Simulated scan of single mutants.
Amino acid sequence: MELILDGLSVVTDGRSLLRDLSLEVGGGQVVGLVGPNGSGKSTALRCVYRALRPSSGTVRVGGDDLSRLPVRRSAQLVAAMTQESAVDLDFTVEEVVALGRTPHLRGNQALGRRERELCARTMGLLGIGHLARRSVLTLSGGERQRVLLARALVQEPQILVLDEPTNHLDVRHQIELLSMLRGCGPTVLVVLHDLNLAAAACDRLGVLSDGRLVAAGPPAEVLTPELVGQVFGVTTCVVAHPLTGDPQLLYSLPSGLKGTS
């Protein structure tokens, strides 16, 4: 299902957090948002999962204005894994994952056989099946991160929104998670800080700076030394990955930092 951000602007307390952002995410695509801290990436995601109402502009899912849909319907269409996601109650992993089915159930309706199988299959896919009966309070940060992603996936959304999903994950699990995004089904809009991971995992990138979209397109077209220098203020050399051909950035430390301890 296609996701369209059409002229989104967010102004709060006299500050412009997002300025006329327009971006299309084709059905089944993985599109990454990258940019410096404070550039508006998380603000854009909050508009998509309806945690924040844009000052102007529209979020469209499959042609429908998301703000005009009932909350229950939008929760069936859009699932989010955010930086603020937290589980502070003594729930088991399987109980937390099962919460992803809430938009599809009515009242205190119990999970059916299909829902239970979906939860078990998703936990297995993310390598947390063996943790099903563990309290989430006993898990590491990386394990909790995978539990929260499983909760989002069992929601069976058409649109999956992820804000820095690789936080707390080791290299292996970062790669496994991002590889899985391509085949997980939903259209994906993801915020990533690691530009090399973003280049490898995403079909297209949108680069934000000071609340504005300054570039959008395939990673090889967007991640140029000139743009990275302009937006991030760092010197880079861009090379092709020897196995995949994806652009990879090699960073140069300022000479004054070399050899310091």
Rank of each mutant, 00 (worst) to 15 (best):
V87A: 15
A79M: 09
G27E: 15
G32W: 11
R53N: 00
C47Q: 01
L18E: 03
G14L: 11
L69M: 15
L5P: 00
V30E: 08
V96E: 12
A80P: 05
G38W: 07
A80Q: 04
G28S: 14
G27V: 10
V87G: 03
V30F: 08
C47M: 01
S9M: 08
G26F: 10
V10C: 03
A51I: 00
V61P: 02
V11Q: 08
A44L: 11
L17D: 01
G7K: 10
T12S: 10
T58S: 09
A86F: 00
V10F: 04
N37P: 06
K41H: 05
V61G: 01
S39E: 03
E84W: 01
Q29F: 13
L23M: 09
V96F: 13
L3P: 08
G57F: 09
V96W: 10
G28K: 12
M81K: 05
S9C: 08
T43D: 02
S22C: 11
K41D: 03
G32Y: 12
E94M: 10
T82A: 15
S67K: 01
R68N: 00
V71A: 15
T82D: 02
G63V: 08
V59W: 05
Y49N: 06
R50C: 03
D88I: 04
P36I: 06
L21I: 11
V71E: 15
G32R: 05
I4Q: 08
G62Q: 07
I4M: 10
D64S: 13
D88W: 05
G28M: 14
D20S: 13
V34F: 13
E84Q: 10
E84F: 03
G63Y: 09
G63P: 07
G28I: 14
G7L: 06
V48S: 02
T43W: 05
G14C: 10
Q76S: 08
V30I: 13
M81T: 01
G35A: 07
N37L: 07
V25L: 08
D88C: 02
E94L: 06
G40L: 04
T58R: 15
V30K: 01
L77R: 12
T58K: 10
D64C: 06
D64A: 15
